[in-house]
C-alpha cells in the first residue's frame, strides 16, 4: 500500500513567500516552518500574475525554486503560468519533478494529453480551483476570480480522460480559513475521481487532516498556514495521525 502524503504548498509572488487567503497574498511566510525531512512533498506555485515563462521577471521564480530544491530531497511539484510544453521542460530543469497545469488546461484540455505524451502522465498534475455559493460548486478561472462556464464535474471527468496524473483541488472559500477542508465538495465529486487526489485549502487542526485522509480517494493533504502556529508542526501532525493513517514516519 502506498502511504498517504502530507504536502506543503508554497506560494511565491515575485520571489517572496506568502500565506494566502481566498487566493490573495495575506502574510509573509518563511521556509523555517517547513521541516524538509518530515514533509512528504512540496508544491511550489508562482502566483505573480500575468507572467510568461519567457519574461525576464520569471527568472526570479526559477532562482527561488532552485534555492528551495537544493535542500529538499523530496518530490517538488511546480506550477503557475505554464502555457506550453517548453515551460514544463524549464520547470523540470530548475528543480521540479512534477508540474501543475491550470489556466492552460481550462483554455484547452488537449494540453494535458500532449504533455502526458512527452513527460508521462505521472508528471502532469492538474489544479482545479473551485468555489461554493449557495450549495453550488463552480470551477473557477483567472486566479480563482471568475466562475468558469465549464461545469465542474464535466471538467473533472475531462481532465482524467486526457490523462492527467493527479488532481490538485483548491477551494477559494476555504483558502486561509483554517475551518477545515471542503468536505461537502469532496462528497460531491468523489465518485468521479479515478486518479490520485491532493486536497488543499482549509486545514485548521490535525483532526481535519486525519478526517480527510480517511477518505479512500484522497491520496494527499496539503497544509500551509496552520504550520505557522505550531512548533515542530509537521512532525507533530504525523505523530497525531500515524495510528489511524498509513503514512511515512
Amino acid at each position: 500500500m502506498v502511504a498517504k502524503r502530507i504536502i506543503t504548498t508554497l506560494m511565491l509572488k515575485d520571489g517572496v513567500l506568502f500565506r494566502t487567503k481566498e487566493f490573495s497574498p495575506d502574510y509573509r511566510y518563511t521556509l523555517n516552518f517547513v521541516d524538509m525531512w518530515s514533509v512528504d512533498e512540496l508544491i511550489i506555485i508562482d502566483i505573480s500574475r500575468n507572467l510568461n515563462f519567457d519574461d525576464k521577471e520569471k527568472e526570479i521564480f526559477f532562482e527561488e525554486m532552485k534555492k528551495i530544491s537544493k535542500n529538499a530531497y523530496i518530490p517538488i511539484t511546480a506550477g503557475g503560468g505554464v502555457r506550453k510544453l517548453d515551460d514544463i521542460e524549464k520547470l523540470l530543469k530548475n528543480g521540479a519533478d512534477k508540474i501543475i497545469l491550470n489556466t492552460a488546461s481550462i483554455i484547452d484540455t488537449n494540453i494535458i494529453s500532449l504533455a502526458a505524451k512527452e513527460f508521462g502522465s505521472q508528471c502532469i498534475v492538474v489544479c482545479v480551483d473551485t468555489m461554493s455559493e449557495k450549495d453550488q460548486y463552480y470551477l473557477m478561472e483567472n486566479y480563482g476570480q471568475k466562475k468558469s462556464k465549464i461545469n465542474l464535474i464535466d471538467y473533472i471527468k475531462k481532465i482524467q480522460e486526457k490523462n492527467a496524473g493527479e488532481i490538485f483541488l483548491q477551494s477559494v472559500n476555504k483558502d486561509g480559513s483554517l475551518t477545515g477542508y471542503d468536505f461537502n465538495l469532496l462528497e460531491k465529486i468523489s465518485s468521479y475521481i479515478k486518479i490520485p487526489l491532493v486536497i488543499s485549502c482549509g486545514a485548521g487542526n490535525w483532526d481535519h487532516v486525519k478526517k480527510v485522509l480517511s477518505y479512500e480517494y484522497v491520496s494527499a493533504a496539503s497544509l500551509t498556514n496552520i504550520f505557522h502556529f505550531t512548533e515542530k508542526s509537521i512532525n507533530s501532525l504525523k505523530n497525531y495521525i500515524k495510528d489511524s493513517t498509513f503514512i511515512r514516519e
Binding site: M1, V2, A3, K4, R5, D40, S121, Q122, G165, E166, K194, I195, P196, Y217, S219, A220, R248
Partner: peptide, 10 residues
C-alpha cells in the same frame, strides 16, 4: 482497484 499512477512513498 488501486489508483494509477502509483504515486507516493511505498
Amino acid at each position: 482497484n488501486l489508483r494509477l499512477p502509483h504515486v507516493g512513498w511505498n
